[in-house]
Amino acid sequence: MLDKMLYNTILSQTLSPCGKYLVAGNIYGQIAVFDLDNIFNPVVELLTSDYNKPKQIHTLESGSQVCSLITTNKFLVVGTVNQISGWDWKAVGHSKLGKPSWTIEIRPQVQFENCDINCLWCSEDEEKLYAGCGDNIIYVFNLEDGRVIHTYEGHSDFVHCVHGNGQQLISSGEDGLVLLWDRRTKKSHNKIVPHSNSKVQRPDIGKWVGAAALDNDWIVCGGGPRLSLWHLRSLDVVTVFDIPDKGIHVSLFHDDCVFAGGVSKQLYQLSYAGDVRVELPVSATTVYSALLATQPRKVLSIAGSSPEIDLCTTFNYRDQVLHFR
């Protein structure tokens, strides 16, 4: 009998607030909980051959793929299809997950029967939850009562990525747009169209933008168009990164460095000038999720089209390989 877990694809990851647990979600509606304390600081006398496998694997009742995960101080927030649910962190480590503490139903426009919750981002005060969805809309929910308090509408195809920095929000989508939003006025005030720029366009791969991130002065984005660095105020492209990928799904800033991955067997760490600082081999043939944390534990976790998750504590090489199967 064919073991479907050999063909597992991991779409999302998050850490518990205490940093003890890594949680990963896959295309089969499963949530794996890994005990990082046991993995990084094992008691040799108690070490077993399955120490790098999940402590628990929970299967959601809906069976819908786990498109996105995010952590608040109290809840593990899970985005699937047409639904966002929150579980109290105290329940996540138990052998049986049980019912969620709360559930938000997404009711997409008529032409969209199913709406994937592709990405989640939470405001710094954890009062508002932003969800980029398959019906082209970014929903903003009040985490106290789950009601929709605003929608951001400007994409004409499904939203791949939502990320915030201060009062600014950035989003990217299948339509090839990178939109900048002011969280105070709740309006889009600028945009980038990478596929229209001759320096970054790759018509053979497409116009979609799979990842975009924002810091105080810079935007990094990529997808079908090449991974590129843009100046936030002028919206000029400053650096086009020369890496051999066939599409970007992950990009983020850390310590004056850009981390990026996608359809490639490497996760790249790049200087703003475009130099490759680290070319990190990964288990997945396509990277869909890269989780980087410095507190309460320093860890870089990389996952995608593989049952394996690569863990790095120095960010320069793999310390551990976890098995989601």
Rank of each mutant, 00 (worst) to 15 (best):
Val33Asp: 07
Val193Phe: 09
Leu267His: 12
Pro42Phe: 02
Arg107Lys: 13
Ser305Pro: 02
Ser68Cys: 03
Leu22Met: 10
Lys53Asp: 05
Ser101Gly: 05
Glu126Ile: 00
Lys99Arg: 12
Leu11Trp: 11
Val220Tyr: 01
His254Leu: 10
Leu179Cys: 10
Pro54Gln: 08
Lys55Val: 02
Ile302His: 05
Asp217Cys: 01
Leu300Ser: 01
Asn197Thr: 04
Val258Tyr: 06
Asp245Leu: 03
Glu153Trp: 00
Met1Glu: 13
Leu267Gly: 02
Leu227Glu: 10
Asn52Gly: 01
Asp204Gln: 10
Glu144Asp: 11
Leu227Asn: 03
Lys207Ser: 05
Leu232Met: 05
Thr286Ser: 05
Trp181Gly: 12
His94Cys: 03
Leu300Ile: 04
Leu22Pro: 07
Ala91Ser: 15
Leu322Asn: 11
Glu105Phe: 06
Lys20Gly: 01
Gly166Trp: 09
Asp255Gln: 14
Trp230Cys: 08
Gly224Ile: 03
Met5Glu: 11
Pro296Gln: 10
Glu124Met: 14
Cys312Phe: 02
Gly274Arg: 10
Leu177Glu: 14
Pro203Cys: 02
Leu143Met: 15
Gly146Asp: 00
Thr59Arg: 12
Gly93Asn: 05
Gly93Ser: 11
Asp125Glu: 15
Val276Ser: 10
Gly93Ala: 09
Gln266Phe: 14
Lys199His: 04
Leu227Val: 03
Glu308Gln: 13
Asp319Arg: 13
Leu169Pro: 03
Ile106Asn: 09
Ile106Tyr: 06
Thr286Trp: 00
Ala24Arg: 04
Tyr317Trp: 01
Asp116Ala: 14
